[in-house]
Design a protein around this nucleic acid. Sequence first.
DNA 1: AGCCAGGCTTGGT
DNA 2: ACCAAGCATGGC
Length: 304
Amino acid sequence: MTAASEIFLPVRDYDLAATLDSGQVFRWRQVENSWHGVVGGNFVKLAQIPDGIRAETFPAVEKWDWLREFLQPELDFVAVLNSFPDDEPMRNAVAACRGLRLLRQEPWECLASFICSSTKQIVQIRQIVEMLCQKFGDPIEHRGGPAERRKQPRDSGFLPKAATPALFAFPSPQKIAAATEAELRECKMGFRAPSLLNAAREVAGGCCDLEKIRKMDYATARAELMKLRGVGEKIADCVLLFAYGFDGAFPVDVWVERALQNLYFSRRRASEKRLRKFAATYFGPHAGYAQQYLFHYMRTKHHD
DNA sequence: AGCCAGGCTTGGT
DNA sequence: ACCAAGCATGGC
């Protein structure tokens, strides 16, 4: 039962590194030529190979539907690219990183992570989420041996970072609901702690049904998520896009706002409201995908 | 409407 | 080395 299992997913135009490091997910780490992470309670290693992705799990699994759901390799990616507006900024953004994809995450992990994300930079979100998993997550069987819970959330300096892959599942709503605000604050999430605690209680108690949201239309689903403390328009849109696959969701953070301002309204300053209205119609049915390209382009290549 | 909420990173000295 | 400013979102 402790052996590994392996699968090859044939897919083109899939840049694993860009995708796993683009601020959608916060637990993936690059180890040499592969990426280590946890999906659906499974420890998994992913590697980019010429015509696809190679995946390994420890211990072995028999079914891979959970991984296909997460990676979405069967998406008609070219159709998505073709749906983008044919203008210079979009062409540049796509050329800068063709193969950047949207993942399909588990709703609770995505919601909880993005509640912790407000006014944080990606490095800090990673730290918070990792501490949360170490403190509250169930250990994941890993290379045949049981995981050991480290005493300190931060690296002590003894263990080289490369030797400490993700060993804990993302904690369930029930587990977080049973925590105290003070315990959550130990994960350095500051004022987001009461919001996370509230969300965990709403979900664990059934008042917020994350599965029901799948069947709602975009506007209803968005309003439902925004009932939660600490979830405004931006975080709701992130969850709708990254966990539920609402491709029309277009999260506007300061990076995207700057991208829209600089790339599409460079001649005169546009109000935030005007930028949102523009974005809501201009980018088409896969606006969320377009947003991810603009976001990545602004953060990596485009400087002025 | 404008300020506040942590903590880490960046920039200036 | 130090301290200030910046980051970036939602609630009141």
